[in-house]
Design a protein around this nucleic acid. Structure first.
Lengths: 139, 139
DNA sequence: TTAACTGCAAACATTTTGCAACCGT
DNA sequence: ACGGTTGCAAAATGTTTGCAGTTAA
């Protein structure tokens, strides 16, 4: 049973065949797939799964904090299993590669910034768009 | 002449009647309007301006670094005149209000994080989603 | 003058939804 | 059995584009 499927049971989510497949596909993904890619991967297991089910399932998982949804600026949503330890993302704009990182000091500063202004932090998004260091500039 | 119109001239952008209106509307906006809102405001000056022109003009301005485009998670793009001093955003998820802030220490840490990994920072996005501090919790 | 711009409507891409059939508990 | 779930296709949403007519330089 996939990690995500376990989380679903904890949340009392009814696990249908399709949801199990989607849970497994995303649990096995080491990248940050979009709906199209999830559909491709799920289709290999169940060729008649529909994109509407992927959308509905990702929404369900997101509402239950089982997955995180990201918008990295390419127009569509991308997903990852909610990580046990929070991290942010570095996006290589040349290759599209996404690298995860963690920085406690920034986290602390964020909390402090909003609390100084009378707010509580409920969520945040930090994305660093980068290009590889090079001697020659590309493009 | 609006601040944005001046910037356009510097960039050698041909200033049509519609572009002048859109430039003025955005220069006068103190919030972060989306295309729909820009259209509403522009329509008060020229009732026959079209939404396609707003889209095309915002893209043109964005490509020339005259405006910044943001996606605050509500599905549509929102714009602001490219600020003379960089800042990030706090979004009050209850009211939708956007507050700008600046923190040099975080900026420095971001640069350091990517450079330690062999990259150059070309852009970044930092958004803090908050709720007002309260004694009672709402929702 | 003429290449670029505009308005309109159609096209697009992504996501959501209505509905009848289906399935898990 | 029955309420939730699925697949399909249609609709909704935000954005882009082809084209014929218009305009700024």
């Amino acid at each position: 049973m996939s990690k995500i499927e376990e989380r679903c049971l904890t949340m009392g989510i009814k696990m249908t065949g399709q949801r199990k497949i989607i849970a497994k596909v995303l649990s096995d993904s080491k990248d940050h797939p979009d709906v199209e890619l999830l559909l491709q991967r799920a289709t290999k297991i169940d060729p008649k799964i529909s994109i509407a089910t992927i959308y509905r399932t990702m929404r369900l998982f997101e509402e239950n904090n089982i997955v995180e949804r990201h918008e990295f600026g390419d127009g569509r949503s991308r997903y990852e299993e909610t990580p046990r330890f929070h991290h942010d993302h570095i996006i290589d704009v040349n290759s599209g590669k996404v690298i995860e990182f963690q920085n406690d000091e920034i986290e602390k500063l964020q909390k402090q910034i909003v609390e100084d202004r009378g707010y509580n932090l409920v969520d945040h998004k930090l994305e660093l768009y980068v290009k590889p260091k090079e001697n020659k500039k590309s493009t």
